[in-house]
Write a protein that binds this DNA or RNA. Sequence first.
DNA 1: CTTGATTATGCAAGCGCTGTCAATACTAAT
DNA 2: ATTAGTATTGACAGCGCTTGCATAATCAAG
Lengths: 338, 338
Amino acid sequence: MAATIKDVAREAGVAVCTVSFAMNGSAHVAEATKKRIFGAVERLNYRPNQSARGLVTKKTNNIGLAVAETADGLENGILLEVIQGLGRAASHKNYDLLLSFQKQQTDKPDEHLLDVYRKQSADGLILMGNKMSERPYKDLLTNRFPFVLLGRPYKDNLCHSVNADNEQGGYLAAQFLLKKGHRRIGFITPCSLEFDAAIDRLNGYKRALTEFDIEVDEKLIALGSFEPDSGYQETETLLSLKDRPSAIIAGRDVIAARVNEKAVTLGYQVPDDLAIVGFDNTIVAQLARPGITSVELPMLTMGHEAGKLLISLIEGDIEYDAIQKISLPCGIFERDTT
Amino acid sequence: MAATIKDVAREAGVAVCTVSFAMNGSAHVAEATKKRIFGAVERLNYRPNQSARGLVTKKTNNIGLAVAETADGLENGILLEVIQGLGRAASHKNYDLLLSFQKQQTDKPDEHLLDVYRKQSADGLILMGNKMSERPYKDLLTNRFPFVLLGRPYKDNLCHSVNADNEQGGYLAAQFLLKKGHRRIGFITPCSLEFDAAIDRLNGYKRALTEFDIEVDEKLIALGSFEPDSGYQETETLLSLKDRPSAIIAGRDVIAARVNEKAVTLGYQVPDDLAIVGFDNTIVAQLARPGITSVELPMLTMGHEAGKLLISLIEGDIEYDAIQKISLPCGIFERDTT
DNA sequence: CTTGATTATGCAAGCGCTGTCAATACTAAT
DNA sequence: ATTAGTATTGACAGCGCTTGCATAATCAAG
């Protein structure tokens, strides 16, 4: 059906290996013959069969993306923007993205994530947001298979990883408010403190305060949860403090939206009586009225950097053992709530 | 490095072909030997090499998803939910999803989308939201390569396609309001009428009116654009009509949000003075305050159905020429604006 | 013991490509 | 003309797997 390398060779009147050489640049081919060959390629719409090529070169030119699916949709953090960044890095270097979705109802979900690797249908793997047991990592590591952790810190220095600098993000949010003169700043964590992102953001907040010589007041720190509506309660608690905060940093935009609502309900003016800063700069922050000032995680960049890193690893531009831990700075988008 | 079928055969003490038979069910293998083989597979963590297998079977077990990237992000319509639905269908049948991103700055962008097909690295293709010239389709069609159009109507009956039933969606929105007693209903199109989705939604709206014996008043139909802020102007226009509408259907949620804002600004009470229905049931409708009643496009289902359809095509369960045009009904989510 | 069915085997071809080898053709410089 | 270098060639092995074929081992039933 599809043209093979033989067809191209015949069409161009050259030997099969000459075509291969010309296409891969693996040996000198005279300009004139090259032209004839590429002409034939064009005419026949020829592309080397990936399976055949992969079989001999042991390269697929695919980047695997292990996607864990939970009952309530995709695992947190699988964001379109990340995929987009990944795709950009990939296409630039002639890779495709292979999304392998975890099988539902399986006894060992995390083992499944590695099937792409076992089948050898990708040259490297991006692991994001997946809770995985220890074993698969070991497997990858001992076989020196390229992989990058994305948005999923692995505290030891064993794996390459790309992350948003959540600490700096927390710092940024607090610093932003401090510079505006706020001195009592509440903080609602994005989720429980089991999650590194939550801890880091909080730590950044504390660092900013310390830098401004303000003592951290634990009463100003409220524990948020994955349930955005918990934001209502936290806001009420924070605002009913005798020395109430003049600003609240919410660990996520959806929580920030709740903070705003509650504040309005309680009769506060935003931003005059209460300033609010959210996190993640999602569409929620963008479209809420008032628009919510929000710390932006560099999702696109994260995907892009992870892709570039992985490809460097695959192509040997970076030593497998020279562990890279890339931490990307957050930005802040000012809107109406500050 | 990775175990091969030979290793498994040795480990299990059987012949290579027996392993192959056992794994593919292509011949009878006694239970006892099967057990030995799968034991060895388990121990060695063996998975058949995809490239090798693909080379001989001419199957990759990949579904290609051609992703066109424009300057301002991914082409409209590439939605995470769609990918998720696709992934669900794929993983169910042991396929992976191969995302191939269009190369930037290339002279023939649409030709590039077919590279996955030309390289034979996918067994079928999902085409969504890509403006493509005629030729690539022809190419696919004449070679009888399986592909389905997703969310991108191709009016002739040449291609398999999956779509939201926009006409029914428009009908639903109008019917919903009519049942609540509204008789003057404004309609702001989601974009210009070059787009089928816009026409269909509008037609559905008209059909509902007709069914309720209400004459369509062209003055109540405003042309929206891709720029959500245009919603402000349209709203003002519609509300300043001498016989103003008591409800407005906005072609997209973001427009609906603008309609609401403007209405409030002009001193109308929502939903009492003005009811609003949006489209797409995005997070915007969900999180806006007041929450926007919105017509939901079955994105997840669309992805899922498209995946299933494509796989049926690939596996020959459906004739290539028995064109299927799947149109999936929209639902409506009532919130505070009605 | 024979027969027939079932199960397992070795062998070999071949999928489309890469890349090595040794040989040949061509070109340009000495 | 000789030499050196470059460009191109055919032949072929091999990547890991599937599959057809013919053969052989195994076993139950007649």
